[in-house]
Amino acid sequence: MQRLINRSPSRPLRIALSIIPFVLILLTYQISSGMRKAENEQDKLLPSFTEIASAIDRMALEPSKRSGEYLFWRDTQSSLSRLVKGVSIAAFIGLIVGLAAGAIPLIAAPLKPLITAVSLIPPLAILPVLFIVFGLGELSKIMLIVLGVSPFIVRDILQRTQELPREQLVKAQTLGGNSWQIILRVILPQILPRLIDAVRLSLGTAWLFLIAAEAIASTDGLGYRIFLVRRYMSMDIILPYVAWITLLAFATDWLLLQLSRFIYPWYHSEK
């Protein structure tokens, strides 16, 4: 008998095993929902799958009676646009500041303590400040994402830059490179795939801040909708929205990984 720590499932078995928990959750949900419905047909807490399907139908496939828009798609578009803008700005700041501080000790000296201090500010605590300064429009929501995510990216990129083998920088100097050339040709191209890594890791946080900002002050967006329909206990809308956000988060992560593998094959075969 092989030891338990040496036994690993074959590929088909592994796939089957990975699906089982999801099936179990859905099954449990359906049974609980049925039990509650049997007691009270009006129950809103655990809507049946047909109710959820008709809610999706209402939100995504029929135009809203009030505005004539497809609310689900409009919410998705607004949220994704904010997320992409916020994360892109944060990634840009993270790359420039992190790279400069990581490569040039004279820039790191004044910036490092500042970055550490800024990263300790809870972004949600200064959300009111953002609303006061930037108004209640798009800008304050994007700024919240930027503020929430960029300190992490800056610190991560700074560290990755300093982790590049010292030998490479010495070698580049013996090839006659000046500081600018070495940053441009040796450091930057090696940091870009690491920036994608950092962005992937920060996406969860970015979603958190996006939904928080939308919940507090917005007129559309996935987070806004969830918090709006909560007032009517519309679980039939909240649940598919949550599933949709999860799917979007998963898809962005997967797409970024594929992009990174496609552009930087050398980076992925190094590990």
Binding site: P165, E167, Q168, K171, V186, P189, Q190, Y264, W266, Y267
Partner: peptide, 8 residues
Amino acid sequence: QKYSVFPH
């Protein structure tokens, strides 16, 4: 001995 060439 190591890291003399640029991986990218």
